[in-house]
């Protein structure tokens, strides 16, 4: 069994007790059909950190998140979460062991109501649904008004809020965020990134992909820039802010 068990993901047998698992990626390659997108990615996300992954469109950032969450098989290389290699663990198994991935663009079930979506998020957790709803509506009052509406008819931003609430209510140990701010109003984006910061402080490893450099760097404690399927540079947010300028304007 190469699968990731709940204990290992929880880091109980990890080197640093009490910290969420970190992510270690070595020489990772992945391809869509014949076209290779990741050409040997090396990345180390420290436990409990907020790690921002920057870079231009088409660099392979979303693909990397797909591989980490088990939605795409790597052609070679390794992803280790906590102590155990992810290997061939299925997406649902990873999810159950505390890896929460919010995909880019479509993170809700369109033909289920808002409420039903929330119940599915907590399908496995045995959580109290009232509590789940309360937590969500407190953060996103808009969703409360819409709770009986089919998620597919929500506005773009409302859908994004609903998608993100999964991270809020399932208490994952590792959070993978793809383009959190996409389609969201500035006010909400600001609040959301505050939220991400808080979650991380409470013990969660966050890896986020974001187009808006300064927004991402304002919450991150470490960052990397990815170009053409490789990690180009890696360092503190301040260093990366400068490096990003040159990459984007190149």
């Amino acid at each position: 069994m190469t699968g990731l068990t709940a204990e290992s993901a929880g880091g109980r047998r990890g080197a640093v007790a009490g910290l969420p698992p970190g992510i270690a990626i070595t020489d990772l390659r992945a391809a869509y059909g014949r076209i290779e997108v990741l050409h040997g990615v090396e990345l180390l996300v420290p436990p409990g950190s907020v790690y921002a992954l920057l870079g231009p469109n088409g660099a392979g950032k979303s693909t990397l998140l797909k591989v980490i969450s088990g939605r795409l098989r790597a052609t070679s290389g390794q992803v280790v979460i906590g102590e155990k290699p992810v290997g061939k663990a299925s997406t649902e198994k990873l999810a159950r062991s505390g890896v929460c991935a919010i995909p880019e663009g479509r993170g809700v079930f369109p033909n289920l109501t808002v409420r039903e979506n929330l119940r599915i998020w907590t399908y496995r957790g045995g959580m109290d649904i009232n509590e789940v709803e309360d937590t969500t509506y407190e953060e996103f009052p808009r969703l409360k008004e819409r709770r009986r509406q089919m998620a597919g008819t929500l506005s773009g931003g409302e859908q994004q809020m609903l998608a993100i609430s999964r991270a809020l209510v399932t208490h994952p140990k590792v959070l993978l965020l793809d383009e959190l701010s996409m389609g969201l109003a500035p006010l909400i984006v600001a609040e959301l990134y505050d939220l991400v910061g808080n979650l991380a402080r409470k013990g969660m490893t966050v890896l986020l992909v974001e187009q808006f450099v300064s927004t991402a760097l304002s919450v991150a404690n470490r960052a990397a820039i990815m170009v053409h399927g490789r990690i180009e540079q890696e360092g503190s947010p301040e260093e990366m802010a400068e490096a990003a300028l040159s990459v984007y304007l190149a």
């Binding site: 997406t91 159950r96 929460c100 995909p103 599915i120 998020w121 496995r124 957790g125």
Partner: peptide, 13 residues
């Protein structure tokens, strides 16, 4: 039906 992959990401098979 809507999205098998998303269902997997929610922990159900």
């Amino acid at each position: 039906v809507d999205d098998p992959e998303l269902l997997a990401m929610s922990g159900a098979s």
